[in-house]
């Protein structure tokens, strides 16, 4: 915390935060607002069930099933809801397709909007000032920070998540994956490729 000054070093600043968070949980528990076991269950779900594997399965399905891909691009929430075995998805999800002509990148300049159900909790860089400030102005420079260089003529389309719509990039299926199963394809779909800051790659 930086809203008071006790001359702490960095380590005790962290423990100060720890203590304050623990105290707040005690207050909320004593007041009967929350059951700590229910908080445990939320944490466990985000640590074990909700993550980019969900999105990767959707992308792999779209790569192998043209009817599903068309449905996904038409209404992603509706299309994913038909795949009962995935985690439930909220409303207002929009899938945007990368093509040789256009590369999509997702950002939230105002806070940290992100398709949690598809990708899990956002990484620190997604929520931090460098990414939030630069992506709408210099997306090619940001992509360079990720080691991604695209052809100079490719349109870069940045989607700023300023409302309750959420965006999932449908990356291009890499060459050399012909005949692969959905499971195998899902393995190469990285989190960053579904944000637009990475590309799926086939390691040989």
């Amino acid at each position: 915390m930086h809203d008071h000054d006790h001359g702490h070093d960095h380590g005790s600043e962290l423990s100060d935060t720890q203590l304050r968070v623990r105290a707040l949980e005690t207050i909320l528990t004593e007041k009967g607002y929350v059951d700590p076991a229910a908080l445990d269950a939320i944490v466990e779900a985000y640590e074990t069930k909700i993550g980019p594997r969900n999105g990767a399965r959707v992308v792999a399905k779209a790569w192998t099933d043209p009817a599903f891909k068309a449905a996904l691009l038409e209404d992603a929430s509706k299309a994913i809801a038909t795949l009962g075995h995935f985690s439930r998805v909220g409303d207002h999800l929009i899938a945007v397709e990368n093509t040789p002509q256009r590369h999509n990148v997702i950002v939230c300049t105002l806070c940290s909007c992100y398709p949690w159900e598809m990708l899990g909790l956002p990484p620190v860089w997604y929520k931090a000032a460098p990414y939030r400030s630069r992506t709408v102005k210099d997306p090619r420079g940001v992509l360079k920070d990720f080691g991604v260089t695209l052809p100079a003529a490719t349109e870069i389309r940045v989607w700023d998540s300023t409302a309750e719509t959420r965006f999932l990039v449908l990356p291009m299926r890499p060459a050399g994956t012909e005949g692969w199963s959905e499971d195998r394809l899902a393995e190469i779909v990285t989190r960053d490729s579904m944000i637009g800051t990475g590309l799926p790659t086939v390691t040989t």
Partner: peptide
């Protein structure tokens, strides 16, 4: 960059 487009909702 002339290839950049940005959308907001």
């Amino acid at each position: 960059d002339p290839t950049v487009k940005v959308s907001v909702d």
